[in-house]
């Protein structure tokens, strides 16, 4: 078991968002979390990554058998947890190259691997950026500054590829992408799939599931997973909408 979430209750300020969420993710699996706006999808992704403003009121999140909530965001990243942001921050004056080097250095150091030389790092970066079709000039620019929506999402996938996490949580990485960008992102995600890694895709639409085939699909409604199934559940949702699940869950 890679990730196990049991009875998770999360609030922001006075508002309860997750209200007893359960989820189990095994190595090698791809999970899709679907649900309408405001159901708590993004909160789930951000809680896993360790966003400070969320308070875990109750429940457990264990990652590789450890209490994930006890770790700082940077410790989670070094332990192999990665979240692709829905709205990645823009870092004025911090070049993508510099940013990735600092990230990769921090993660490798923690994992007891030797620091990459500039040359080794460049070789790795060249390989990974080609995969998501980010050109050499772009990594010299400030992180996400002046990037198009699609470029930002591809940059998230580039970071995932560079950091080589064990658990990747994609927070609406597919939203706002045209068909070409969606394909590039999906290819990047597919090439990341392996028997030892897992992916949790938070998404609003089943569109990306046509490119990245999930093992499990979950419907998140009002802070709880109310239905789980295989790939066919996504198609059913596409056809019938969420009201159908809502009616059944009630």
């Amino acid at each position: 078991m890679l990730l196990e979430i049991r009875d998770l209750h999360v609030s922001v300020g006075e508002t309860d968002i997750l209200k007893g969420l359960n989820l189990t993710v095994n190595p090698g699996e791809v999970h899709a979390i679907m649900g309408p706006n405001g159901s708590g999808k993004s909160t789930l992704a951000n809680v896993i990554a360790g966003r400070p403003e969320f308070t875990v009121v109750r429940g457990e999140v264990s990652y590789q058998g450890r209490d994930l909530m006890a770790l700082l965001p940077e410790e989670r990243a070094r332990e192999g947890v990665f979240m692709a942001f829905q709205y990645p921050a823009e870092l004025a004056g911090v070049r993508t190259w510099q940013f990735l080097k600092a990230s990769v250095d921090a993660v490798r150091k923690h994992r007891g691997m030797k620091e990459l030389s500039i040359r080794e790092f460049d070789r790795l970066l060249d390989e990974k950026r080609r995969m998501v079709r980010i050109d050499a000039d772009m990594v010299k620019r400030s992180v996400n500054e002046g990037y198009s929506g699609g470029e930002k999402k591809r940059n998230e996938v580039l970071q995932m590829a560079m950091l080589d996490p064990t658990l990747a949580v994609l927070d609406e990485t597919d939203s706002g992408l045209d068909i070409d960008a969606l394909r590039i992102v999906a290819d990047g995600v597919n090439s990341f799939r392996s028997p030892s890694k897992a992916i949790v895709m938070v998404t609003h639409y089943q569109r990306i599931l046509g490119y990245v085939s999930p093992d499990r699909v979950h419907v998140l409604l009002d802070g709880r997973i109310v239905r789980s199934g295989g790939r066919e559940l996504a198609l059913e949702l596409e056809e019938k909408g969420y009201d159908w699940v809502r009616a059944e869950a009630a």
Binding site: A49, G50, R51, P52, L72, P73, E74, R76, A77, R78, F82, M83, F85, P88, A89, L91, G93, V94, Q98, F99, A102, S103, V104, A106, V107, H110, Q159, L163
Partner: peptide, 17 residues
């Protein structure tokens, strides 16, 4: 937070920013 989620500690993130 974005930078910490990439493995950097607060010091490194602040210094870069």
């Amino acid at each position: 937070f974005y930078m910490r989620s990439r493995g950097m500690d607060v010091d490194t993130a602040s210094r870069l920013l």
